[in-house]
Simulated scan of single mutants.
Amino acid sequence: MSKSKPTILVVNDDGITAPGIKALIEAMNDIGRVVVVAPDSPQSGMGHAITIGKPLRFDKVDIYEGIEMYKCSGTPVDCVKLAVNLVFKGKKPDLCVSGINHGLNNSINVLYSGTMSAAVEGAIEGIPSIGYSLDDYTLQADFKPCIKYVKQIAQQVLKHGLPTATLLNVNFPVASPLKGIKICRQANAKWAEEFDERMDPHKRPYYWLTGVFQLNDQGEDTDVWALENGYVSVVPVQFDMTAHHAIPVLNSWKF
């Protein structure tokens, strides 16, 4: 790898032809040598799923001139695993960026997000990793206001690195102008879910998942607060899910 020009792996969960990944490719191409590995179809909400029960298709594609690109039939996490093993062959990239997702991945959404799980997989592999998301689900989403911050954050990570086993979850509001960056914690929230029951032509029920986002946190240091107030939220995320504060409690029990 060139020391003067970093190698950057670009992944996503919306699929290789999504407008969000095009914006991220263009932003990263100004910083380093870009290699893209992305799903061949949308994979939103896949979380950290991997494909183990069927073979994967992995093909080189020519979509954007001068960019090395591959499409994968699997999940976002599969894309990172294939990139590390087949494309880079153990010589890992300097940075892994995922997105730009169509829709927020703030608060509890980080657990369900294919975008963030791809970045988590990058971090598991020891690659400095960032997930980017914008609060706009439409194909007409305007990513231009995000690009300055996308580049700034990526350049800071390349310059300083990240703490061990840590990655960044970056979310953008639809605000004009953006007020700047806030380093935040993940807000305490959840989805109050319902299943809308309908009937198919054969009179068999089927279900659509619906829900309402419930915020149980009024702190002004959260990602939800930052986004609601026009700031870019940056949350450091770890994949060690140990509840360290609970260990002394459990050690006090009599087994």
Rank of each mutant, 00 (worst) to 15 (best):
T210P: 01
P205I: 00
E193T: 14
S2K: 13
T164F: 08
V235A: 14
P173F: 06
C96T: 12
T210C: 14
F239E: 06
R185W: 00
S4Y: 08
K81N: 13
P128W: 09
I130G: 09
R57H: 14
L227G: 07
G99W: 01
Q156H: 11
S44L: 13
S107I: 03
D217H: 04
Q43C: 08
K81A: 02
M116L: 15
G99M: 04
M46D: 00
P248Q: 03
V97E: 05
I153H: 05
L178D: 05
L86P: 00
V34E: 07
V11A: 15
S117N: 11
H102F: 00
Y112H: 11
L178P: 00
D221S: 05
I16Q: 02
G161Q: 11
G20N: 06
A83T: 01
P93C: 10
L24N: 02
K91Q: 14
S41P: 00
V84M: 13
F213E: 12
N101E: 12
E26H: 12
G114K: 06
Q186K: 14
T115E: 05
W208H: 12
K254G: 09
V77C: 09
T17W: 07
A187M: 04
Q238M: 13
S117T: 02
K89A: 13
Q186V: 10
A123M: 10
N188T: 08
P6Q: 13
M1A: 14
K254V: 14
P42C: 04
P248S: 02
Q155A: 15
I124D: 08
N251L: 12
Y70L: 04
S133K: 02
